[in-house]
């Protein structure tokens, strides 16, 4: 039977939202600086693999984490180098990196493990789960909110972190000015290219955690193409959240919810192939509904503005 209103279900929603949330925060930073980081998919996938390899061979979770971060930032750096410094089209470079990462990760995996499907043969470490004292003892709420992986809590902190960075720090102010009016930024001596590079590297950092969550928390192995479009879903989430961290948190949770629903549907015997479409179809429906909501909001806004200006005409 399908049952959506259990604490266990909410636990699942939070679990599957985590990687999307990390990547969506990465997307926000980029979008605010005026670059479209379509390579989030490959950033996550690469970090998922390098994290597993680094932790598997070192048997040290910290080294594993550094490995994952470097993997993600390497892809982000490559995107920055080709698009910002060699002036290639950022969308095309992003697509190329995404395609390359799918094959490239399998190749690297084969070189290190001799396996083409997953990294089962090496024992990767996992990030620990955290039980939150007091909270875990509260019935229902405790079941849903406590006991998550440490990266889940980190993802939630990253929402606050990104908000704080963008709206409270001077660098955040400069980053936003670069995204909104690069000429204005240049005219007061801000190095636009450097700011965009930094934004891309930050997105590589955040996206890497999204990827590592997939292979070192959600699962303990890397498997082929395991990110499965979550990088793109995050871009949609950031767009729906209007690049506002808290709005994006809501949008990411919506996609997490739909993914969780799809697991439930699978459990009641609906063919996996159809169920597998649910998260992606929900992205399209979500974006359409959102666009319509935006339009009606715009209409109301202009109307109320006119009424304000012209009380006699109302």
């Amino acid at each position: 039977m399908i049952n959506l209103l259990t604490p266990e279900f909410f636990f699942t929603v939070i679990r599957v939202t985590t990687p999307i949330l990390f990547a969506a925060m990465a997307a926000i930073i980029c979008s605010k600086s005026g670059v479209i980081n379509i390579a989030l998919e490959s950033i996550m996938l690469t970090a998922a693999l390098t994290g597993v390899l680094a932790s598997g061979f070192s048997q040290n979770i910290f080294i594993g984490m550094v490995g994952g971060i470097l993997g993600g930032m390497f892809i982000a750096g490559a995107l920055a180098y080709f698009s910002l410094y060699l002036k290639a089209d950022i969308i095309l470079v992003g697509i190329a990196l995404n395609l390359m990462a799918v094959g490239g990760t399998v190749f690297v995996m084969f070189v290190f493990t001799g396996d083409r499907g997953s990294t089962n043969s090496i024992r990767s470490l996992q990030f620990p789960d955290v039980n939150i004292p007091l909270l875990q003892d509260i019935p229902v709420v405790g079941t849903a909110l406590s006991g998550h992986n440490i990266l889940t809590y980190l993802a939630i902190l990253s929402v606050i972190g990104v908000w704080f960075f963008l709206s409270k720090t001077t660098y955040g102010l400069r980053l936003r000015s670069v995204g909104e009016n690069p000429d204005a930024a240049t005219s007061v001596g801000i190095d636009v290219r450097k700011v965009k590079l930094v934004a891309l590297l930050i997105s590589g950092f955040l996206g890497a955690f999204g990827g590592m969550y997939m292979s070192m928390a959600y699962l303990s192995v890397f498997s082929t193409n395991m990110v499965a479009g979550r990088g793109f879903i995050s871009l949609a989430a950031a767009s729906m959240g209007q690049a506002n961290p808290f709005g994006t948190l809501l949008a990411a949770s919506f996609f997490g919810l739909m993914e969780s629903v799809s697991y439930q549907l699978q459990a009641i015997g609906i063919p996996a192939q159809i169920v597998g479409m649910v998260p992606y179809v929900s992205v399209i429906i979500g974006l359409v509904l959102y666009a319509q909501y935006q339009q009606s909001l715009q209409k109301k806004k202009t109307l109320s503005k006119q009424l304000k200006e012209d009380p006699n005409e109302a």
Partner: peptide, 13 residues
């Protein structure tokens, strides 16, 4: 920069 305040625009940089 349209989304920022007057003061933020003045001090930017």
């Amino acid at each position: 920069v349209g989304s920022m305040t007057v003061a933020e625009n003045v001090v930017l940089g």
